[in-house]
Design a protein around this nucleic acid. Sequence first.
DNA 1: TGACACCAATCTGTGCAGGCATAAAAATAA
DNA 2: TTATTTTTATGCCTGCACAGATTGGTGTCA
Lengths: 243, 243
Amino acid sequence: MATSLHAHVVEHLGSRIVSGQIPRGSIILAADLEQKLQVSRSVIREAVRVLAQCGLVNSTKRVGIRVLSAEHWNPYDDHVIRWRLASDHRGAQLRSLTELRIAVEPMAAELAAEVAPEALRKELMLLSAQMNHYGRMGDLRRFLELDIRFHAAVLAASGNEMFANLATPIGAILRGRTDLGLMPERPHEEALLWHQSVADAISNADPAAARRNMESIMRRTHNEISGLWEDEQRLFVDASKPK
Amino acid sequence: MATSLHAHVVEHLGSRIVSGQIPRGSIILAADLEQKLQVSRSVIREAVRVLAQCGLVNSTKRVGIRVLSAEHWNPYDDHVIRWRLASDHRGAQLRSLTELRIAVEPMAAELAAEVAPEALRKELMLLSAQMNHYGRMGDLRRFLELDIRFHAAVLAASGNEMFANLATPIGAILRGRTDLGLMPERPHEEALLWHQSVADAISNADPAAARRNMESIMRRTHNEISGLWEDEQRLFVDASKPK
DNA sequence: TGACACCAATCTGTGCAGGCATAAAAATAA
DNA sequence: TTATTTTTATGCCTGCACAGATTGGTGTCA
């Protein structure tokens, strides 16, 4: 995946920092990295610049590259989300994202019913029909991909780019949920119905119904996976943040 | 603000791309930038790397640095948000962020009532008391700062770092709202009451009441500023996104 | 002797200049 | 149309000078 050299370095350092292999507070020297990873300074510097934007490190003169603690990480960065989902504390990331989608998706459905262009409404109807089809057939693999596309389409149809940009991590959640065997052998009849109802409501420009049915989906989703983070500690970041 | 040289370049290019002075689709050559901005290649390269992560540009071999269209921008990046708020299309950014906070803040209040540590509950009570005091006095300057801290505190008290990280842009919205003269001469009595009720509910561990009162605040907020983006076009990003 | 202010040494990221390698577009040939 | 060569801008490397922060030492004064 990572084709360029500096992307490799970003991946190497980022994943190790998030997983905890490189302890927070520790200090890395650029010169050491050059030698250890066998790449040149320019590569290291660009990688560090990227990691600094993720909030993972903070390079200052005379001291080096300081590894920051989790409260400084940018929780919306795609890299960070991916690394967290791959780490031992994936529960915390799953919880944050799920809570966010519980808040956002009903609102997105409501907005979509108000403002979505006709083409997107049609696409939603098509997607929900296909979900019904493959869901009842028990083709979980295909159902999953349709489910991901359905939720992405609703987010996109809201016309809010901040909502739409959550499609990727939400897709990652859905994929992870089936990979972990948290999905029933075949989708619940209720769930299929709710998806259909969301599509109908958006298609019929009925914001209240769209929200209501999406809320039902979210409630079930939450019940199905909230067990994953039972013992995961919450992170209370200080409101008075440093620069 | 931008102390380092490469940060200057990021600022220079980023603001011009978002404002539209550099048209999307156009291609910049690193060598030209070197000469025009009178900086060395390493500075250009690091800046371009940062801008690439923001989704503003995409540098490829043999072609140069391509300026991407708005649908590729990362809407959660602090730089991007700042530049968009400073541009002619600030309305679109204001709308996205406001819709997001309408979705998120009631959920945050609900969560805070469930999981917030005692210290944060106390702080919220203190903040709402101060808001009452300065609000009734008509000290808008101080009220604004307290309002920002209040909402940041609720988001932090939710124990969800994705919610907590919205405090900065939401603060920017609130500041902008008063700067644009959209605030009444003194805060509405209702608004003060709702803030107080949110703090009470969180303090008393009453999630439903916390959500309900925060929803009231959000409804009023929306009514007060939704006029700002009446004629702003919505951006429907393609669900099937390129890499 | 001890506390404190000031200064110098040193260490490390930041920025600069130039060189070679390489990939991808464009032009040319088959 | 397809294959090959040429062109050209980024990717990557290296040596050098500079700036800023930490550290330790030095000197002054109480």
